[in-house]
Amino acid sequence: MNHLIKLALMVLVANVLLASSCKKTKDEFDKSQLASLSIEFDNIVGGQNLMLNTGSYTNSSNEEFSVSMLQYYVSNIKLKRTDGVEFTVPQDSSYFLIRENNAATRYAKLKVPEGEYSSLSFVLGVDSLRSTMDLSLRKGVLDPAGGMEDGMYWGWTMGYIFFKLEGNSALAPVDPTGARKFRYHIGGFGNGQINNIKTVTVDLTAGGIAKVRKERQSNIHLMVDVAKFFGGTQQVSIAAHPSVMFSTFSTQVANNFNGMFRHDHTEN
């Protein structure tokens, strides 16, 4: 008799466990039903669209400038469903290099489970773990070979340049070629004193949640404002800081990153 009761109890407990685990899978994502979602990084300067070389802008220090290069890494993307459950994009397919001079790179194209998403987060840069992985796991945009001047890797400190903004301004000092260039190369994954890895979170509720369905192509349209790079929590004056690279000041510049990203709208 005693044994029977024990057995019944065990079955009951097992059932409860089973039920809760079922419920859990229901809460999680159906990964067999993946659909397309893109995140668009639309680079602007204040109220103007960003035009490489030809556009002329004024920053918050009242300095006139033009932009010749803008590129940055976006990685480790996570999406939160309206019920609060979070989906992490598989890391191997979660590294993007957004380059203003190449229109095709403005979209981070993802495959995510169907659902309604109201929040998005990503790392601006490359996480420290990936920064020290074997070369076989660092292909494509993570290839340390990079390119010529537009390379995004510092060989001597073994780190990716997370964010690169270059341009011209009369306020920048003249170089031997006669140009007046400013250069902001921000990186540092914490192998030395500086860690400029920033996580950016964007709420989609006001601008429109993303309704991801198989037969649709949902696109989250973000604005990335270069004006906020110069005038965020830290004022970055071209005259005072025409070149910021691997230095302690770069950590203050990196604090402006979060403010650069805002959600404009979602195309469902």
Binding site: P144, A145, G146, G147, M148, Y153, G155, M158
Partner: peptide
């Protein structure tokens, strides 16, 4: 590697002399 230990993975070491303007001044591509 190097006098300053800036690189900690031998597989990434050659990038430095190859791209250094006073050493080989070349790009990997």
């Amino acid at each position: 590697f190097f006098w300053d230990g800036g690189v900690t993975d031998l597989d990434l070491q050659p990038i430095v002399p190859i791209t250094n303007p006073v050493e080989m001044d070349e790009t990997i591509p």
